[in-house]
Design a protein around this nucleic acid. Structure first.
Lengths: 334, 334
DNA sequence: GCCATTATTGTAAGTGCTTACATTTATTTT
DNA sequence: AAAATAAATGTAAGCACTTACAATAATGGC
């Protein structure tokens, strides 16, 4: 079944069938109905390849992320997928892992599939050294690149960001005003959002004229048990901390487990705040106060922006969304 | 840059370029090298649409699941993606949610994209009533359908399953031999794997000549806090249970939280076993004993089988993989 | 060196769609 | 009712590839 068969059955030309297919208004209602009838009867579906060949586009967006099994990224993928489909676009997902080589390779692969745009999810997708991202800047000349919670300067590159810095600053301020003096800050990576969160932590201390002690800022893999180990070690080494502020809920879970193991009372003796408000945060007892990074809003905004780009609208290249602090039982706020 | 440009630069015909592109052996080494050189110099990549038009295939597999944010499914997606790419196939992901209407719609959408096969992940993807799956059975005439942890009979439909029934039976037997007499069984759905797990629970009791009390089998949404509520209610209603066996780790986390809230000692007073060995299982204190459903093995087997199907090999339509019990601190096995 | 094979290369006809432009038909306007 | 305009439809030329078949070049046997 192809467009010729349909045109023959409906007694029209293939051009008319094509117009019906593409919602072209220059078709009389009578013939449109007749053509649609034939299509339904025969169960005809247009061949995407032929269509892509003619149009040069296939209404498909490439979504890339480092690892779909991270709850945060998994949620983002879910929302992006949903929003894109609502806008009439399909998506191809690629999980690249962390190697730059893979990222590049998969990117090229999607590019060769002629996706209409890219959505790169997570700040870890962007490399720290600018030159390692030049392939993206270069590619953006042909196809728009959207970053969800990632940052990169460039023509035709659009970022939707969460205001991590403010969120962490405010969280730290609440801890400080709640009587915590020695806040340990745990972060997973030096990505854009990672360093931004750290700045928020520093902001809070500096605004109060407090000094930032570098041994209270610790890098830690995004892993529950590793975090528990790290905190146990710091404790045994004699570092005193009465609060743990983290860049990811997984670390906060690790902190809760450390507290259990070392007999520290939460929140009286130790306060804990996580980041992302993911499933992690309600798994523990007590449940974890967490910063909600608004994944859903981030994703809908990204797709809306992208549609703006497609329609030639004047669209901001950078949108920032405020986070929310979700208060649970690992902190004693009023 | 198209095949004509390359052929001109290399001084050969487009047929020869096409042969190089497709690894056709009927090309002399000299000309092959020359053509490849030109391709590299110019950065030429073949147009997928034109290629698809000619070949009728695009080396792309449609992956469908109900919800990518479920940790189990997220892992499956990750492994499937990886294995497919290693075999030279791309994937398009669709998260359909639970509505049958959506499943059908997205399925047709991928079909119209001419994917070379479908991989449907999770037993919840298959409907309970046989007639609701007839669209799949019908479609399988054209394109192979692989089910990961789902079951459906039909020509050209291949299932890779985890032996849930045995796994749950053995887990229950260990609880029974460890002195638990009143094992509560919590399950999330009546899917194929859901009912299979339940059968395992019944098997264990019946093998020992014990009667199955229906109020010890409870349906529960896949939600931590709902599970906690349900157990609290059952407790208050006076139901006595000394172990909770669940069809998903999320429920097991809820059970741990119930135990904390109601002052029940784990594992002395209450044993808990989860399913899937997901991130959930190490978030709590104590950490949860869980049945490892071998997602990775399931996924690699699925892709291997699919490649067998593509190559016309004689491939089993049903493969079953044994699960593993990962012992942690919510049980007191020796 | 000639013919039969075989290896390599080229020609041209699909593949199923889109769309600029041409043509026909319907609707106004005068 | 003719002319002018607008609406609907058709024709045919792409789009970038694959591949059957034809043609040519290389090789080997005598």
């Amino acid at each position: 079944m192809n467009i010729y068969d349909v045109s023959k059955k409906a007694g029209v030309s293939i051009a008319t069938v094509s117009r019906v297919l593409n919602g072209n208004p220059n078709v009389s209602e009578k013939t449109r109905a007749r053509v649609l009838d034939v299509m339904n009867e025969t169960g005809y579906t247009p061949n995407v390849f032929a269509r892509g060949l003619g149009l040069g586009t296939i209404r498909t967006i490439g979504i890339m992320c480092s690892d779909s099994s991270d709850p945060y990224l998994a949620h983002a993928i879910y929302y992006l997928e949903r929003e894109l489909r609502l806008s009439g676009y399909d998506s191809i997902l690629c999980c690249t892992g962390n190697s730059l080589e893979n990222k590049r390779q998969y990117f090229d692969l999607l590019r060769s599939k002629k996706v209409d745009a890219f959505i790169l999810v997570g700040s870890k997708f962007i490399e720290l050294r600018a030159k390692d991202n030049s392939y993206l800047v270069e590619a953006a000349k042909d196809v728009p690149i959207m970053l969800v919670n990632g940052y990169l300067e460039g023509e035709n590159i659009y970022c939707t960001l969460c205001d991590d810095r403010t969120a962490v600053r405010q969280a730290a301020e609440q801890l400080l005003s709640g009587g915590c003096n020695d806040i340990l800050y745990l972060f997973t990576s030096y990505s854009y959002s990672g360093t931004n969160k750290m700045k928020g932590y520093r902001d809070a201390l500096m605004n109060l004229g407090l000094s930032v002690r570098e041994d209270y800022i610790q890098n830690c893999p995004k892993d529950v048990l590793e975090t528990k180990k790290l905190l146990s070690r710091l404790d045994e080494e004699g570092l005193h901390f009465d609060a743990v502020l983290t860049s990811d809920d997984a670390l906060a879970v690790g902190a809760v487990k450390y507290a259990h193991a070392y007999g520290r009372k939460i929140p009286d003796d130790l306060s804990i705040i996580g980041y992302n408000n993911s499933i992690y945060s309600i798994c523990t007892d007590p449940e974890i106060t967490s910063i909600d990074s608004k994944v859903e809003a981030l994703c809908t905004t990204t797709v809306t922006t992208l549609m703006g780009v497609f329609n030639g609208c004047n669209v901001p290249s950078r949108t920032t969304i405020a986070a929310d602090l979700i208060k649970r039982a690992t902190t004693k706020f009023h």
